[in-house]
Each structure stands twice: as structure tokens, then as C-alpha cells.
Design a protein around this nucleic acid. Sequence first.
DNA 1: ATTGACGTTTACGTAAACGTCAACTAGCAT
DNA 2: ATGCTAGTTGACGTTTACGTAAACGTCAAT
Lengths: 147, 147
Amino acid sequence: MSVAATPSAKTPAPRDAQRIYSIAELSREFAITPRTIRFYEDEGLIKPRRHGTTRLYTAGDRTRLSWILRGKRLGFSLAEIRELLDLYQVDRTGLQQLRELQRRCQLHIADLERKRADLDQHIGEFRDVEAQVSAELKQRGIDPESD
Amino acid sequence: MSVAATPSAKTPAPRDAQRIYSIAELSREFAITPRTIRFYEDEGLIKPRRHGTTRLYTAGDRTRLSWILRGKRLGFSLAEIRELLDLYQVDRTGLQQLRELQRRCQLHIADLERKRADLDQHIGEFRDVEAQVSAELKQRGIDPESD
DNA sequence: ATTGACGTTTACGTAAACGTCAACTAGCAT
DNA sequence: ATGCTAGTTGACGTTTACGTAAACGTCAAT
């Protein structure tokens, strides 16, 4: 389809805000399959425009996608990620809406900070192990081949 | 069976290193079902002693369990967690073993630090949202009921 | 002797998050 | 016209991480 084909074939990938991405392009960039991207769409995480039946992704969609993947790396389920994404575009007009948004942000931040504490402890433990191993290796002599 | 029953029923839970825990006790403490604990055993994450067919958990098993759950909160799969747990008890005698252990520690630490960067950015974004919402709420007046 | 709390195994079920075909379609190059 | 390359939908399969139910054993107390 070459929807996003560069005119003179000189520019490799102009990371403009105006750029339009194909599904294959995004799947390559983020190392996921097109099937996965379509799946996220089925789950309501992204809603790309269409040209006919073909999906067209904007820079915003791309950002959203990277957001999704980061959420995944942090251990959130797709359902949670969808909720979090929605927080960014809920109606901020009503007072109750604002209060609810604030509340949910605070809850989520607290969750994240607990996670951060877990992570720090976890890192600490592995640093300890690594340090002990390093010390032991130094003890035994730094000669590279001696097993 | 009351394997871990306290004699005079006075001491509530002596957190000794010698203590032995029943499966129900651990499941209550960590808010998971016994089924889950048995499942972890099937997956090779814990290997409690047995008295007949009944499982007996030591303080070490308990620590292992809390470790598993923390790993889960951080988004690791059970397979990954098993590997990480194994790192703690691999044979540290051979030089090659030590080098391999060091290498894997370093890889894992790098992974964790990437995760930490993800997490920090994530937290930052939500703090921003929360700050904006707070500002907007303050702008509109702090009167509690006005919707 | 029965009840109740707790434990066991075996087996099947399920929700989430995709992967893997299969069978199209649409545009472009030869 | 034919083939190639991307894209599409749908259906079904798979893995992970358990839940659920059945059917049973064991011990202490009643």
C-alpha cells in the first residue's frame, strides 16, 4: 500500500508529528507482530484511522502504543492499561469528574510507589549477590583461564 | 493436623527461624489460596518437606514465597522467578559457575534498571496529571460542594 | 460414632494475551 | 494477466496462572 512512502526515497524516517505509520512499520519498531497491534485495537487500546480497510497510525497512536508496551513491562494487564490510558482523555469539565480523576491518579501513584519500593529492594538483593560473586572471583585470582 | 500448633495456646505466632508453617497459615499471611501455593510447588518454585503427605513449610520456604510474590508484583513470569530463585542456590564452587552467575546477575540487574527507568517515567507522568488536576481544582475554588 | 476443620490428589475449567493458520483483497510491477 | 507484497478478518490453538469440584484421609473434640 505504501501509504507512508517517502517522496524522493531519501529521508529514512522523518519522525514528524505529521507522519503516518503502517502497521508493519510499528510492529517492526516495537518488535511485536501486527496481530498484536490489531489485538490491542480489538481490546480498545488504540483506534487508528482507516483508509478503506487499511489501518493508518498517527504519531499519537504510536505514542499510545509505546505507552501500552511500557505498561506491560511494568506488569499491568491490558485492562488496567486501558483504564490508565482513559485517564488521559476523560472529560475534565465536571467537578466530580476532576475529583474522581484526582483520586484515581493518587491511587495509581501509590501503587506505583509500592512497586518502586519492591523494585529497589529487589535490585539491592541482586547487587549483593553480584558483589559477593565478584569478591569471590577476585579472591580466587583474576587469571582469566583457570578452571 | 495442627502441625504448627502452639503448646499452651498463648504465643500467637513466634516468628522464629525454627517455626514450621502449615499451608493454610501461609496462605492467610500472604492472602493467596492453598491451591496457589501447591501450584508453585508443581512449578518447582518451592519444595516443602512432608510429614506423610502433609506439607511442612520452614521459615526459608516462607521467605522464598514472599520472594515469589514480590517477583510477581514486578511483572516476572513464574518461569523467570524460578530462574532467579535458582540463582541463589546454584553451585558456587566452580569458576565457570561463578562467572555464569555473575553474568546472569548483571543481566538481571540491567533489566531491573531499565524497568526502574520505565517506572520513574511512568510515575512522573501521573504526578503531572495529578498536579494539573489539583491546580484546576484549586482554580475553580476549594468549596467542597459546588457541582 | 459423628462432625468439622484441615489436609490431600486428580482432573477439568478458565481468563488473558497473544500466535497461527486460512482465505481473502487491494495496489503495484512486470 | 500474473505475480508479489501488504493488508484484512475469522477461527482456532496455546501458554500462563491459577480456580473449582470431586472424592478422599486424618485428627481433635463432642
